[in-house]
Design a protein around this nucleic acid. Structure first.
Length: 812
RNA sequence: GCGCCCGUAGCUCAGUUUGGAUAGAGCGUCAGACUCCGGAUCUGAAGGUCGCGCGUUCGAAUCGCGCCGGGCGCACCA
């Protein structure tokens, strides 16, 4: 086996002579960990060596943590542990550090060249109050990184129009290879994880708040996959709630003038005889043709119609309370469902009489219409997210949770555990409530009970979420122990013009599925749920109900699963008053905000009032600005086609948007401002993209002059070279990428990763000016710079495309 | 009232999970950059009682306690 491992990586025989004369290739040598995890390996080995030295000094303390030295002149890695030991050992910290250093030196001297610690420079230094600092052998370390990144630049640095790397089971070739070798055949497979994000009510267009959710969720997915975890992505669809019902109320009952005001500007075919019947008919026709969702960026789509219709309905309720009876009726109808064979056409025929007279209230038909509304909005959302490189594996529908009896089963389990009771008196009389008085988490609450079933017998959101969460964790089981599961069916859209080839949403490799309420409906090989860990990306405003869900899992006897049910909370996206005014001007609207509202630092978005920045609208604006920027900057010297320029503008727009969402800490309210969102200079996505484009450009030019070199050639040239501080700084920072990803995932804080990417780009841009490659003084200098920039190019491409989901265009 | 989050340069924000060496970016302001790999870049300057106080510690932006200011929750909404 060891021979196989060696030969599979041994693409550079000359390098192996220089750095690794030993043919020994057992596990645990640096060659098994030379890629993205190289620095982790060295730190781990060094930590255990320090721990061993301490043991030899009769120190019991076992936890050894190696820091990164604050400035490169001081060293690369640092151990600060001598300082706290000074008291108990009654020795000055510097003396302790010296003792440890001496012992480490002895150990190091006896190591084989292939040992990870052989990459440490001999002669550890002690600085300041007693910091023990370590330096890496720069040339050999850089050489290792070059070989690990081999192929990334040559593959990706070529002329290439922007596109998304498949986020699916992803990673660059280098990453995938490294994963395979670093874990080895014996290491147990990592456990399955589920990330649930997006979760937009399917009753109107997505806005920038939803974008924050989806970008955070998708970034988490990408990072988890990068670290080798199998991840399933879910987008929960609340297709039976009040919000969808309100749009249906709008279509069926809202005074016709209002309905037409929302629909007419978008659907020209109703112009001749504008009426409710024409609107519903047009809806059915479009759905039949497959044109209800048009997917053309920049022109209004069905979700835009709903965006306009929905606030009109809520305003109607405010003006006329009796209209609320329609909402209740539609909700009731939706709950009942409809026969699976019922078509939308049939439903609409029954809902509209030919002369547009009194409408029937056929419940199954209303329910069928609601399903169509939800599905059309959902498809719009999937298209919007696809534009940002965000894809899903499965779409659990709330209607299926209900019809499949998830809640019934969850209720039985809760009853069995004695966690729920039916109130017979007091304000909650007639409700099923979960008592939280015994839970420390809820101590001090005035009313520590949570209603799960209303007095009218319907289940609350929290109740449904408990059932859903149990299913995700594989804990929703029937008495026999078998999983209580959904059915599934494909949710691909189909290409127009008769093709039956599905077109995938987003850029994932696998097909997209939705749930079904018949458990026997199950395409071969399809299975979802039952993960060891679940991340739920949900607004911080829902922290309380999320805690209740977690508590329910705990009291059902699954404390470990409860710990693995993670609420990934983030603060809301609001608008600056300036942004609100700009929206009002652009749309010719008046949101009716008070002076007090406008004096606040930010204003909350409101779908009900129609206050918000739509995701697609922002993307269109960004693309327009990017096109203008390209024209301004490149002018006559750009000989690309309009299509190429459009692609670049799109990549820049996506980069700006995703970076803005990732760079801000999740616990801070994001006050959206147009000027900030449209910035392409400084700490922005395009700044990072430009660094990647610039680096790739160097290799393009080098290639044209026959000076391209290769990772192997550069590795050999660099192994014995003296690497100056500034170049080494960049190399070392690149090597820290995996550490940063682990940190970001551990803290669920992607500002760490965004900041890391910006630091890398900044360092590169500076070096770019100071270290010319093409016009280097001599071949030695050129090879060194080429090697450093090659590592940077591979690293930044991986961070942007694989981790942050930011496409790197060929030109800008 | 109770709970959670935020307070760092004129403005927008990193850094707090795991205390460590001289607290960092961007924007804005001012002054600059080679006939040479793309100026969406780079260099320099000015700009800080890390909200306030007390404590723990060899060491605090980071940990604890108490205040002050702001936001969000505490639904038979989702």
């Amino acid at each position: 086996m060891s021979g196989v491992t060696c030969s599979s990586r041994g693409s550079a025989p000359s390098f192996h002579r220089a750095i690794a004369p030993s043919r020994l290739c057992r596990r645990g040598t640096i060659h098994d960990h030379g890629g993205p995890r190289m620095l982790e390996t060295i730190r781990r080995e060094l930590a255990s060596a320090v721990a061993a030295a301490l043991t030899a000094m009769n120190v019991e303390e076992a936890q050894v943590f190696l820091d990164v030295a604050p400035r490169r002149q001081l060293g690369d890695l640092a151990w600060a542990g001598a300082l706290p030991l000074a008291k108990s050992l009654r020795k000055p910290p510097r003396a302790i550090a010296e003792d440890v250093a001496r012992r480490l030196e002895e150990v190091r001297a006896g190591l084989a060249e292939t040992h990870p610690l052989a990459l440490l420079e001999p002669g550890f230094s002690i600085e300041g109050a007693g910091f023990l600092n370590f330096r890496l052998r720069r040339g050999p370390t850089l050489a290792h990184l070059l070989l690990a990144s081999s192929s990334t630049v040559t593959d990706q640095g070529q002329k290439r129009e922007p596109g998304f790397t498949p986020g699916k089971r992803g990673g660059s070739p280098a990453v995938a290879r490294e994963r395979g070798s670093s874990e080895g055949p014996e290491s147990p497979p990592k456990k399955k994880m589920i990330v649930e994000h997006t979760n937009i009510n399917p009753n109107k267009a997505a806005h920038i708040g939803h974008l924050r959710n989806a970008v955070l969720g998708d970034t988490l997915v990408r990072c988890l996959r990068f670290l080798g975890n199998p991840v399933e992505v879910q987008d929960y669809i609340d297709d039976t709630g009040v919000q969808v019902a309100d749009v249906v109320v709008g279509l069926l009952y809202l005074p016709e003038v209002q309905l037409l005001a929302a629909v007419a500007p978008v659907w020209p075919e109703i112009e001749g005889t504008p009426s409710r019947a024409r609107v519903l008919d047009a809806l059915a026709v479009r759905a039949g043709e497959g044109t209800l969702v048009k997917e053309t960026l920049g022109s209004p789509d069905f979700d835009d119609v709903c965006w306009d219709l929905y606030p009109r309905v809520t305003r109607w309720y405010e003006q006329d309370e009796s209209a609320l009876k329609f909402r209740a009726e539609v909700l009731h109808a939706v709950e009942g469902g409809f026969p699976s064979e019922m078509t939308l056409n049939e439903a609409i025929d029954r809902l509209v009489s030919p002369d547009d007279g009194p409408r029937t209230t056929d419940h199954a038909s209303v329910s069928r219409l609601a399903a169509a509304v939800a599905e059309a909005n959902l498809r719009c959302h999937l298209v919007t997210m696809g534009r940002l490189g965000i894809a899903y594996d499965v779409l659990p529908h709330e209607s299926d949770i209900l019809h499949r009896g998830f809640w019934r089963r969850a209720l039985q389990l809760l009853l069995g555990a004695g966690a729920i009771r039916k109130e017979t008196e007091g304000k909650n009389a007639g409700c099923w409530v979960m008592s939280l008085v015994d839970s420390p988490e809820f101590a001090g609450m005035a009313d520590a009970d949570k209603i799960l079933v209303r007095s009218n017998g319907t289940v609350t959101y929290t109740g449904k979420d408990i059932a859903y969460q149990l299913w995700k964790l594989g804990l929703l089981r029937d008495d026999g122990g078998t999983l209580h599961d959904f059915g599934y069916r494909a949710f691909d859209r189909f290409a127009q013009e008769g093709s039956t080839a599905p077109v995938r949403y987003g850029f994932g490799e696998g097909a997209l599925y939705r749930t079904a309420s018949d458990p026997d409906e199950r395409p071969a090989g399809v299975s979802f749920g039952a993960a060891a860990r679940v991340y739920n990306v949900i607004d911080a405003r829902q922290s309380y109900p999320q805690k209740v869900v977690k508590e329910a899992i705990r009291v059902l006897g699954h404390p470990e699963a409860a710990e693995n049910s993670v609420h990934f909370a983030y603060e809301m996206v609001a608008l600056t008053p300036k942004a609100v005014k700009r929206l009002e001007e652009a749309q010719g609207l008046d949101f009716g905000l008070s002076e007090e509202d406008l004096s606040k630092p930010f204003i909350e978005m409101s779908g009900r009032r129609g206050i918000g920045v739509k995701a697609d609208a922002l993307l269109v604006t960004l693309i327009g600005e990017a096109e203008r920027a390209i024209a301004e900057r490149r002018g006559a010297d750009d000989n690309s086609t309009p299509e190429q320029r459009a692609d670049r503008a799109r990549a820049i727009a996506v980069g700006a948007l995703r970076y803005q969402m990732a760079r801000q800490g999740r616990n801070r309210v994001l006050a959206f401002d147009f000027d900030e969102a449209l910035a392409f200079e400084g700490d922005t996505g395009p700044y990072l993209q430009y660094s990647a484009v610039r680096a790739a450009k160097i290799f393009e030019k080098l290639g044209a002059q026959g000076l391209a070199g290769s990772p192997e050639v550069d590795a050999e040239a660099v192994a014995a070279a003296a690497v100056p501080d500034d170049l080494w700084d960049l190399v070392f920072a690149c090597a820290r990428t995996t550490e940063m990803v682990e940190k970001a995932v551990g803290a669920l804080e992607f500002s760490l990763l965004a900041g890391h990417a910006r630091d890398l780009a900044q360092a590169f841009h500076k070096l770019y000016h100071e270290h010319p490659v093409l016009h280097a003084e001599d071949e030695g200098a050129r090879a060194l710079r080429r090697g450093v920039f090659r590592v940077f190019a591979a690293t930044i491409a991986t961070i942007l495309e694989t981790l942050l989901g930011i496409p790197v265009p060929a030109e800008m």
